[in-house]
Design a protein around this nucleic acid. Structure first.
Length: 481
RNA sequence: GCCAGCGUAUCCGAGUAGUUAAGGAGGCGGCCUGCAGAGCCGUUGCUUUCAGCAUCGUGGGUGCAAAUCCCACCGCUGGCUCCA
């Protein structure tokens, strides 16, 4: 299996530190707003990686953090006059709800920054004692000069591009913190409290953690000194991931993460979707119009490293395609059986196996979902053609094979969550009494309408159909008897 | 300025040297329908019967062979500042 490693700018064979086990950390969200489609892309991308590694038989330990204290949360708290914890709790709850709807599997652990404050303080103290960090005026900074390879992390250095060139550039850019930092590139491990901000006691007085340190600390604490895969969005390469590497490797003296994987963005009009540009679409809003699985299909139909360019009607093709998949599953489920041996059915059965092999092959090449999904669609087209156009009858063995394939698809792509409840979305079984009542009422209306149609009272039955459509119920008519 | 990446048919989006440029959307034709929608099948660069000729931002180059490798240029995005 190959993965694209951002550290080396190339695809590499994936070999975990410990055979059969994968330690994985993904940078999560800062919880000050409703998750938008970009957050969903990242979550779904790493969910797919998580699922495929498990499919390949690895025991995966995956940790994803919540940054629940930072400038933006403090700002939001001041603006709404709520405790910062209320804001972060609310957004974590919403994030989890949305991840469940998107069928993102649970991580092994989701620690919050505020849970590991003690460990952050210890980590910073250790870096000070090793000479990699220093205290100034109640804040603690990491000394970039103490980590010589800093500039070359996640960036290709050409011969003429010297470190001083970059420093010169950064001097021009950076005006804040100038008085406390010894070097412009240094970054805060611990920030001194400002008036009215939440704080924790530390050896350096009241304050709160810097941004990058929580990830290093959580990895050390929950996963160990070295991990296999570190993931996150492209935008986190610098400064976040570079700083994480500097801290962690200074602390342990060992190579930090073996592979860094970065997902691409969701763009809007070819610009990055982001909160600061105010061009974002929240998942909560999109879900009002589209099934979460349509969103998921849309996100995985482009490669995790490339970007999706989103427009409000971008999900229409995904919706059509997804409905087609469901339809085929339904057709196989309801297909007529025949005992007659059939070469055509044997061929089709073989195609299921071939399709599965090709999907695995695509996924082993840096999780190439577009190619894998194309294979899936090709198989479905073959099945549709045989069953619908050529009237092929199936047998139990074929049906079993097909549904085992569907379960495989769910296992690695997570696009058919309805399988878990053993209920296909089209045969709505619900124990809830209220739902049953509604269902019965609907059936009554449909039966009545069928009678009208038998009597050729089309005008009236069309009105009923239109009215039901207004209520969100689509009726598909078959030939009138 | 530096770093990463992108430019593929009407649109979205794969493909990174070797028979037909995956798949989808839209268009068109067909099946189905009382009608419609949905669904299903086929088709969708050009000239033409067979067949031939093009084509992957532009221009060069290397190769028997290039969308794919190299060079130059044009255009776009992102990172270097909180970010998935």
């Amino acid at each position: 299996m190959k993965v694209y490693n951002s550290l080396t700018f190339q695809k590499e064979e994936f070999i975990p530190l410990t055979s059969g086990k994968v330690k994985m950390y993904v940078c999560g969200v800062t919880v000050y707003g409703s998750p938008h489609l970009g957050h969903a892309k990242s979550a779904v991308a790493f969910d797919l990686i998580h699922r495929f590694l498990k499919y390949k038989g690895y025991e995966v330990n995956i940790v994803k953090n919540y940054t629940d204290i930072d400038d933006k949360i403090i700002k939001a708290s001041q603006e709404s006059n709520e405790d910062y914890r209320i804001i972060s709790d609310r957004h974590i709850a919403e994030y989890e709800e949305i991840m469940e709807l998107l069928n993102v599997e649970k991580d092994t652990r989701n620690p919050r920054a505020t849970e590991v404050i003690d460990l952050i303080i210890k980590f910073a103290q250790e870096l000070i004692s090793k000479g990699n960090a220093y205290e100034r005026n109640g804040s603690v900074y990491f000394s970039v000069k103490s980590f010589p390879k800093y500039t070359s992390i996640l960036q290709r250095i050409k011969e003429h591009n010297t470190e001083s060139e970059e420093e010169d550039y950064m001097v021009d850019q950076d005006t804040a913190f100038g008085e406390d930092k010894l070097d412009k590139r240094d970054f805060a491990l611990w920030k001194k409290m400002k008036e009215g901000e939440p704080y924790w006691e530390s050896p350096w007085g009241k304050g709160r953690p810097g941004w990058h340190i929580e990830c290093s600390v959580m990895i050390l604490n929950y996963l160990g000194e070295r991990i296999d895969i570190h993931g996150g969005g492209q935008d986190l390469k610098f400064p976040h991931h570079r700083n994480e590497i500097a801290q962690s490797e200074s602390y342990t003296g060992k190579e930090f993460a073996k592979y860094f994987l970065h997902n691409g963005y969701v763009n809007v009009n070819n610009e990055k979707m982001s909160k600061s540009l105010n061009n974002f679409f929240t998942v909560a809003d999109i879900i009002k119009d589209y099934d979460p699985m349509v969103i998921r299909w849309y996100l995985i139909s482009s490669h995790y490293r490339s970007s999706n360019n989103y427009a409000p009607d971008s999900l229409e093709p995904a919706k059509k395609t997804y409905n087609r998949l469901i339809n085929t599953i339904k057709k196989v489920n309801d297909a007529e059986f025949s005992d007659k041996p059939s070469k055509q059915l044997n061929d089709l059965t073989n195609k299921i196996t071939e399709s599965k092999d090709k999907i695995i092959e695509a996924m082993e090449d840096d999780f190439d979902t577009p190619v894998a999904l194309a294979e899936l669609l090709t198989l479905f087209r073959e099945i549709n053609k045989a069953l619908l156009q050529e009237g092929l009858k199936i047998n139990q063995s074929f049906k079993d094979q097909f549904f085992s394939y569907i379960e495989f698809i769910e296992e690695i792509f997570g696009i058919f969550p309805f399988l878990k409840s053993k209920t296909l979305p089209f045969s709505t079984v619900n124990d809830d009494e209220k739902d049953n009542l509604i269902k019965n009422l609907i059936n009554l209306i449909i039966e009545t309408r069928s009678k009208l149609r038998e009597k050729k009272l089309f005008e009236l039955s069309d009105i009923i159909r239109d009215r039901l459509k207004e209520l969100g119920l689509d009726i598909e008519d078959k030939k009138v008897k």
